[in-house]
Structure formats: structure tokens, C-alpha cells
Design a protein around this nucleic acid. Structure first.
Length: 304
DNA sequence: AATGTATTCAACCGCAATCGT
DNA sequence: GACGATTGCGGTTGAATACAT
């Protein structure tokens, strides 16, 4: 019953991509442009399903993708947007140029969520005791800005995968691969199309580029995604790279609606979540999780 | 040095939305 | 409008790697 998975076909290759496959895919897209993924495997001879080709392109080969360290500004934006939108990674990614939804999702799951948990534990130490698994995990890495495993700064974490054997982690390979295309890419608003300028050109979110959170406070009066849509409606959300529309907020699925509604519920008083304090705490690498003003912190608990 | 454990992230899977007929 | 095909998205997995013992 139901449609069989597209990758279940015999002879369809799975797993990590090889440099040869990447070159084939990039060459094809360079010539034909992204899209019509269905025809990509057929036309290229790649033994990959269309989905895999699209994923490889959007998450890795696409020009202008920034890998590695997330800046504090990016972290702050993710925190902000996640609080506003829930796990709408694609929507969040549309406001973080050069970052893929997958990247953001991974970063959230591996780094930011931990920070949030720690934040919660600071708020409600007793509740942490109830969640033993999480609690023990967090206790292993008490320094907020420290990698639990290495004890070193988070900055280390996102260096392009240290692996020397793993091709997929070699950004140099990819950039070399794409160099020709990047050079020939037309410019839009001073940015190479290759930079995947999916962020709305007029969007206040990042246009300031000052690295301050104020830059995203254009959401100040937002209480819902619908409002966000209004606030950005003047911007043409168009991925200039492949022509795909990049609507920051498509019709949410049921689960997402729930998520969003939860946010709405939290904001029933029509006030935005008091995130500035959270950001400060969240991004303070020297923070040890100490809460100086517990009352202020308590205000934040309802957000999550 | 060997082994066990934790972490990361590229890639896969399944579902829902969208598109084309 | 109905239906099938295609695309996009979010959750999850598992191999590779780093770290701890």
C-alpha cells in the first residue's frame, strides 16, 4: 500500500557521494540549472535517485554555502527564529544566507538544544532531576560555551569536518569544483547569485550586517508567522540561484501548526517573548549557567 | 595501545504540499 | 475536481570521528 520509496529501486546507489558523482551533478546543473530533479539521474547517468541529487545539491554542492562555525549572530538568529517559528528549518534558513536548513537543524539539535536545556535547568533545577538522562548529559558540560566532549570552545566544532578521508567534508574540493561557475555567476544586489541570497533583499533581518541582534528585531511586533509574512511581503523571496520560490513560511503542516499555535498561546498577551535576556545569556560564552536574576529568567520559561 | 562511549553531520525516509494533466 | 507525479520539508539514522578510560 502506498507509493514505494523512490530509492528502493534496484541499482540506486545510497550513501556518501564521491567526488566523481559531485562533478557529474555540478556539471549537469551548471549546464541546465537546478530543478527538474526527476530527469537528473536519467540525464547524468548517476545511479542516484532524484531526491538524493536534490539533497546533495541543496545541502552541499550549491554555491555559496557556508560551512563551519556559526557566528554568535547566527546563533542568535536561530534562537530567535526557532522561538518564533518552531522547527521550521527551511523558513529559518531563508533568513540565514549561506546556511542550509539541514545545517541549521543539525546545529540546533547538537548545540543549541543543549544550551536551552541548560538554560531550563538553571530556571528549574528540580525539574532537571526528573529528566535524568538529560541532566546527566548536561552536567558533563557545565561550561556553556564549551564543547561537552572536547572541553574546547564551540568554535572548534564546526570546522569543516576534520576527517581527511571523508570526501564529503572537503569544502576545498567543492569550491574548486564550483570555481568556474561562481566566477561566471551574475550579481544581484552586490551578492553573487552563488551566495544563495535567499534572504529577502529588503529584509531587516540581516541587511544591517552589524552582527547585533537588533538587526532582527524587525519582528518586534510579530505575534504569528502570518504577521511575519506581512512584514516581509514586500520582499521578493526568490532564490536567484535556481528560481525556486523561497517562501519563509509556507503552509505549515499539522505538526507545525501545533508548534506555531503553541507560540501563539504563549504570546496570548500579545507580547513577544522576552528574548533579549535569553540571547545575552545564551550567547555569553563565559556564562557558567549562573542565574543572577532569577525573576527575569522565570519570565522566559514560558517560551519553551 | 586498545577498547568503549559520545558526538557530529551527511544522507535517508516518509509525509505533505504542489504541480500537471 | 480527481488523480498521479514530483518536489520540499522535518525527523531520524548511522558511519566516521573524537574523546575518555
Amino acid at each position: 500500500m502506498g507509493r514505494p520509496p523512490c530509492c528502493d529501486k534496484v541499482g540506486i546507489k545510497k550513501g556518501p557521494w564521491t567526488p566523481e558523482e559531485d562533478i557529474i551533478l555540478v556539471s549537469y546543473i551548471q549546464e541546465h540549472g537546478p530543478g527538474n530533479w526527476r530527469s537528473v539521474p536519467t540525464n547524468t547517468g548517476l545511479m542516484r535517485c532524484s531526491k538524493s541529487c536534490r539533497l546533495r545539491w541543496t545541502n552541499y554542492l550549491r554555491p555559496g554555502i557556508k560551512r563551519g562555525n556559526f557566528t554568535p549572530h547566527e546563533e542568535g538568529m536561530i534562537v530567535h527564529l526557532q522561538a518564533l517559528l518552531g522547527n521550521k528549518w527551511a523558513a529559518i534558513a531563508s533568513y540565514l544566507p549561506q546556511r542550509t536548513d539541514n545545517d541549521i537543524k543539525n546545529y540546533w539539535n547538537t548545540h543549541l538544544k543543549k544550551k536551552l536545556r541548560k538554560f531550563q535547568s538553571a530556571l528549574e533545577p528540580s525539574s532537571m532531576a526528573a529528566t535524568d538522562e538529560l541532566a546527566s548529559e548536561e552536567r558533563k558540560s557545565l561550561d556553556f560555551g564549551t564543547d561537552a566532549r572536547s572541553g574546547s570552545s564551540n568554535v572548534k566544532l564546526n570546522q569543516s569536518s576534520p576527517s581527511s578521508s571523508s570526501y564529503a567534508s572537503s569544502t576545498e574540493n567543492i569550491s574548486r569544483l564550483l570555481q568556474g561557475w561562481m566566477r561566471s555567476s551574475p550579481k544581484v544586489n552586490g551578492d553573487s547569485i552563488g551566495s544563495y541570497s535567499s534572504t529577502p533583499a529588503n529584509c531587516d533581518l540581516i541587511s544591517h550586517g552589524d552582527g547585533q541582534f537588533e538587526s532582527i528585531l524587525s519582528f518586534e511586533n510579530m505575534n504569528s508567522v502570518a504577521l511575519m509574512e506581512n512584514s516581509t511581503s514586500k520582499a521578493t523571496l526568490q532564490d536567484s540561484g535556481n528560481g525556486e520560490k523561497l517562501n519563509p513560511e509556507k503552509k505549515p503542516k499539522a505538526g507545525h501548526l501545533k508548534n506555531l499555535n503553541n507560540n501563539d498561546d504563549d504570546d496570548n498577551d500579545n507580547d513577544n517573548p522576552p528574548l533579549s535576556f535569553l540571547e545575552k545569556w545564551f550567547l555569553d560564552e563565559s556564562s557558567t549557567g549562573q542565574v543572577e536574576d532569577i525573576n527575569q529568567m522565570m519570565e522566559l520559561s514560558s517560551i519553551f
